[in-house]
């Protein structure tokens, strides 16, 4: 039995990856044992993360990543700060900020904290090492019958 396929989005280019890494580094600059976003290589996972999104949202995400990732780093930081502030606005006034937060913070956190980086010295996830996080699950043939 193979696992059901889910196609990573093809339009995600090297440039998108670099742009996302720049945004990610503002949100996750790294500290001590936690690698920075770009050090973790997490941006490369974005097409896999976005594979389940609606096509219209995929297109919006690619545009957003290109535009925001092209900004100078201080401007990216300022934008993210404004988004955090704007999220507190009630009702539809706060909707753009909350949607931008979902899009940008969502994809950065999803790709970084999923444990799929292989950047620890032992080839494991450096992020999970830093969190000291591991889930245990013993699966026997008997269990899945």
């Amino acid at each position: 039995m193979t696992t059901p396929a889910s196609q990573p989005i093809a339009a995600f280019s090297q440039r998108h990856e670099q742009a996302l890494a720049r945004i990610g580094d503002v949100l996750i600059p790294g500290n001590g044992s936690l690698p920075s976003y770009s050090e973790s290589g997490a941006a490369a996972l974005a097409p896999r993360a976005l594979a389940g999104a609606r096509p219209v949202d995929q297109v919006m995400m690619l545009r957003l990543i290109s535009v925001v990732g092209a900004l100078p780093r201080p401007l990216i930081a300022l934008l993210l700060l404004c988004i955090r502030g704007g999220m507190r606005l009630p009702g539809i006034a706060g909707a753009p900020a909350r949607l931008l937060d979902l899009a940008l913070k969502g994809v950065v956190m999803n790709t970084y904290y999923c444990g799929l980086d292989r950047t620890a010295p032992d080839g494991d996830s450096a992020v999970f090492h830093a969190l000291d996080f591991r889930l245990q699950m013993q699966v026997d043939d008997e269990d899945t019958k």
Partner: peptide, 20 residues
């Protein structure tokens, strides 16, 4: 990451119109 992308609608979450 894969659980959201492959087991859930819209790749994980669907916001309400005001995204609250």
């Amino acid at each position: 990451l894969d659980a959201s992308a492959r087991l859930m609608w819209s790749g994980g979450v669907e916001p309400s119109q005001d995204a609250s």
